[in-house]
Design a protein around this nucleic acid. Sequence first.
DNA 1: GACATCACG
DNA 2: GACGTACGTGATGTCC
Length: 937
Amino acid sequence: MSLNFGKGCHLHLIDGSAFIFRAYHALPPLTRKSDGLPIGAVAGFCNMLQKYIEEDNGPDAPTHAAVIFDKGSHTFRNDMYDLYKANRDAMPEDLRPQMPLTRRATEAFNIACEELEGYEADDIIATLAVQAREAGGRVTIISSDKDLMQLVGGGIEMLDAMKNRRIDVEGVEEKFGVGPDRVVDVQALAGDSVDNVPGAPGIGIKTAALLINEYGDLESLLDRAEEIKQPKRRQTLIEHRAQIELSKKLVQLDCNTPLEFTLDDLEVRDPEPDVLLPFLTEMEFRTLSKRVADRFGREAPEIQSGPATPNATDAPSTPEQPDFADAHYECVRDMAALETWIGQIRKRGYVAVDTETTGLNEMRVDLVGISLCVEAGHACYIPLIHREGASDDLFAEDKLADGQLPIADVLAALKPVLEDPAILKIGQNMKYDAKIFARNGIDIAPIDDTMLISYALHAGLHGHGMDTLSERYLDHTPIPIKPLLGSGKSARTFDLVPIDEAVPYAAEDADITLRLWQTLKPRLHAAKVTRVYERLERPLVPVLAEMEMHGVKVDRDTLSRMSNAFAQKMAGLEAEIHALAGRSFNVGSPKQLGEILFDEMSLEGGKKGKTGAYATGADVLEDLAAMGHELPARVLDWRGLSKLKSTYTDALQEHINPETGRVHTSYLIAGANTGRLASSDPNLQNIPVRSEDGRRIREAFIADEGKTLISLDYSQIELRILAHIANIDALKQAFRDGQDIHAMTASEMFDVPLDEMTPEIRRQAKAINFGVIYGISGFGLARNLRIPRSEAQGFIDRYFERFPGIKQYMSDTTEFAKEHGFVRTLFGRTIHTPEIAAKGPRAGFAKRAAINAPIQGTAADIIRRAMIRMPDAINDLPCKMLLQVHDELIFEVDHSAADQLIDVARTVMQNAADPVVKLDVPLIVDAGRGANWAEAH
DNA sequence: GACATCACG
DNA sequence: GACGTACGTGATGTCC
């Protein structure tokens, strides 16, 4: 018996995505007890649906209802504007597998569930709402999305379920300053940072409403823009007309989406107990199952496996883990055994994975074996290419050890599992394993990483290597690898370790990883770092893996020529130095140099350090040179060349991969306490730039043929963050006005007008600005500026007088650190400061580190966000992101697309804080390009 | 393996 | 009143 939709009918349209995200963020990361499947969002979603159904609306009750979902991320709006919603964070990995389950939940509750490829949920809602209105019915849209407000009126209202508030025409006017019919006009002008709708720069909702009310509508406004009195506003509207018109198209909902159902199909139906209850049981929602069963007057279904109820608010506890002594480690030697393991993984939905390789260089080593673990104490090792050492016959080829599955068969069998979006792969330092798998044709995803979980939880407390974590959190010392591999002459690679020795070691690594995951993952929520882990750590893994694997092209000949030139110059200098010293000695030995300078030549200023050796650092030698001494001056020259040669021109050549002809660095994600990355093997974050000689090394970093290098760097990002965090109006205004911040500081401090600024005064102010970021001290500033300590202290006092907010920030931060033992960045990254309670000089260090960490860390968070969003943004361009140097990203791009890339990448970087943090200062990104890094920078 | 030195942000 | 000091990293060469 079907009711045709018409007068007297009441349609409810529920914004499904909004429900899901609210459920996801409102609840701790619950997992299904029996197998660990992430289920928190589904639980919250079901609770909301149940509440919705239970609500007694009386005569207002809906006759028709539907939950509307988004489908896919690409819509017709992306075709109009490729940056549409480009600011959005990727969906958290533990939410992704829950999306299909929310559809199933909707169906289980017997509510119509609709979505349409290429359209947003909002468009479907708009189409249905308009159809319903035309049919003479009433509509309630359950959502608080302001984009839907344009639909309100004539029987359509919205309901903000969160605040339980109805939004009618007056509500819309309150929000936008215009009626629903003009909402799109206001949005087109004001733009939207969340959806990345550009709008008109400098015009917000207030101004937009004012203009629309004055001119009637957007089209009249734009046509008559010349009449606007305010010159800036007039110019903005004329200049950005196209952008405003595009914005209007982006925010305008499509009321004519091609739907394959009618309103009549949405008639409200009661849930079927025989459908709903089994679904809730399968999800293991105990409390909710009982509540639903009660309403149906049925017996509550039995749920064996425990309390993963949607009402549980405390973090799930770590399951009981068997003693390591009782662990069972298996060697997989035939396909049947492998299939059994794969079956267990599929049943579970997650697996801890570890790879064994012939070395540590991910770009060169071979995969030797794979370990898997699905349950604490139960793991396996799959040997792949272990060899028998040919110790008897020096000339015999090592042959493959018996009893190993063909590597191709194993990889083919594991690939579907490792790439299955519904199976979580857990690892310790997954970037390493991901790269090994990638080189073997497997794109492993989704992943969890115990190293990164620990980093989000414990940065500043201890390291995040597996041995450390195992000892601290599992009270177990892992089997050391050293005895297996030997050392010195007898060293061997893992493929030469006999399989029966390899199994316990390798399988244990996977076991430990799984146990760490069970122990640490549930702690993220209580420590309030789930977002940090989900949005700043985990998504970075594939991004960095790709950058590292792609590498940067380095020209060997350039480096080799420079090495030779340096060697010649050094030989000349060395002879000169020996002549000046009156004897031959090792110029590279600080100890010998100290003896020459201060004992034999009896120069002044010899100071011994704690080890009893003379200090011969650059500052000491510079002072001596300034006093007119030749020898220290020549040693400084020699050291400069020696550094460049050994660390750069020589060493970099060794790092050129013979297969790719490129240099592949490795980024440590969990190395620096502040959230910065660190680069190693080789370190490409400290390639010289400050000296002329050094900068030329960057000429060896080149673009491939037909391509060009692009460098984009944040201008003064840490000072901008300081201005925001410490809330310093003068600094914020200076950044908004695009002023020279060091000159402005100098002007404030020394009462020098900007147009009379000298480079020397500006230099001093610059040193102070940097000092502030580092937790300034009179001593440090004095040393840096080479001025008396009293004078430096005077500068600092004056600075704090002029910018009292900075002093306040410093004391607030150290107080916070003392009280809590940690500090946080704007994005919630937690950096522990255990030493803050120490006595003596250590407290000073800890204090300054605590002041610096939120600033340096926030900058690190911002560039991480940019990097994570970058692949999607530059997807269509013939380019690659190659390197990160703290506040700089380097790309390689086809000549033809260079301008486009700069546009897109700059936009991503400048908006990287949005929408989580609204900075009071703009972020500015400078760009450079060239055939090599020296030109691009 | 500790230490000093120096490259970068 | 003494302590000793700018923040965060990684690579290299000496020397024990």
